[in-house]
């Protein structure tokens, strides 16, 4: 399991969080309970299985709901 911290563009509406959370959870290989979107910090934190998916897939999912990824860190 890898841990990812994704810095997003500034989040403005509370429903943005729901959208991003749902988008990340839709990626196969992401541990659903680990997904946390921090509204004020404009960050997403999650765990994922590196054998099933990668950080690029997750970033792509966030892009499709209309949000930019500024920086991501995987550990």
């Amino acid at each position: 399991m890898s841990k990812a911290v994704i810095n997003l563009e500034t989040l403005a509406c509370p429903s943005c969080m729901q959208k991003i959370e749902a988008a990340i959870k839709s990626v196969e290989g992401v541990e659903k309970d680990s997904v946390k979107v921090l509204f004020n910090a404009s960050k997403a934190k999650l765990n994922f299985d590196q054998e099933k998916t990668n950080i690029e897939e997750i970033e792509k999912a966030i892009n499709t709901v209309g949000f930019k990824v500024l920086k991501s860190k995987v550990r």
């Binding site: 509406c13 429903s15 729901q18 959208k19 209309g66």
Partner: peptide
């Protein structure tokens, strides 16, 4: 409308 549609795609009924 864009915001409403994006939310709807993930089954979120927003005020939009």
């Amino acid at each position: 409308a864009i915001q409403a549609f994006q939310a709807l795609r993930f089954k979120v009924i927003s005020i939009d």
